[in-house]
Nucleic acid binder design. Structure first.
Length: 185
DNA sequence: CTATCGATTGTCT
DNA sequence: GACAATCGATAGA
């Protein structure tokens, strides 16, 4: 198995495969973060994907090189983080089990309970201070740090959350039994 | 516990 | 001008 997930080889694959393999990885932004426990895959020919209708100013990073960040503003107020895979595909980071910099997360989020810090893509964005400035940056360099799990964790699968098109695709993945996911599987 | 609704603004038609 | 890969508050069972 790979050691560093920032390797282009790891991300230059199907976003579905990458999304499953990211479960259990340790991810931080400027030292704040934890274990990735929930992801979703978005593909080029996927009606629910931002890349479905080709390149635009917003989704530019999705068509750039693999192993870079794609960041967008959701509903006018939530910054969401993706990892770019093959061109036009990406993995949305939906939930993290907080591990590093939890007091910083609490201050940013305005809540104390650990399970409310990063259980949802908007919450992850706020807890890790994700913003437009990080859009398109390489995952292998500061402020990002990503380390894959050395063991293979039990992965749960389900349909994606919060979309209105291609709703039946089973491209949501989670750490089985985790209480830090955004919703039960 | 579930259901509903308002917030808020970038993006695309 | 419509809509969105969400969240938090609130009301009710």
């Amino acid at each position: 198995m790979h050691r560093l997930t920032s390797d282009v080889d790891f991300f230059a694959r199907s976003a579905v495969q990458v999304a499953a393999d990211l479960i259990g990885a340790d991810f931080t932004v400027s030292g704040v973060g934890g274990l990735i426990v929930e992801t979703e895959a978005y593909l080029p020919d996927d009606a629910a994907s931002h890349s479905f209708s080709g390149t635009t100013a917003r989704n530019r990073a999705m068509f750039g090189p693999p192993a870079h960040a794609y960041i967008y503003l959701s509903y006018g107020l939530h910054w969401c983080l993706n990892f770019v895979c093959l061109p036009g595909s990406a993995v949305l980071i939906r939930a993290i089990e907080p591990k590093w910099g939890m007091d910083t997360m609490r201050a940013r989020r305005g809540v104390r309970e650990a399970r409310l810090l990063c259980s949802g893509p908007g919450r992850v964005g706020q807890a890790l201070a994700i913003s437009r400035e990080l859009d398109g940056l390489p995952l292998g360099e500061d402020p990002f740090r990503l380390t894959l799990s050395s063991t293979k964790p039990p992965v749960a699968t389900g349909i994606r959350v919060g979309i209105t098109k291609a709703v039946e695709q089973p491209w949501r993945f989670g750490l089985a039994g985790s209480s830090f996911v955004s919703r039960k599987f």
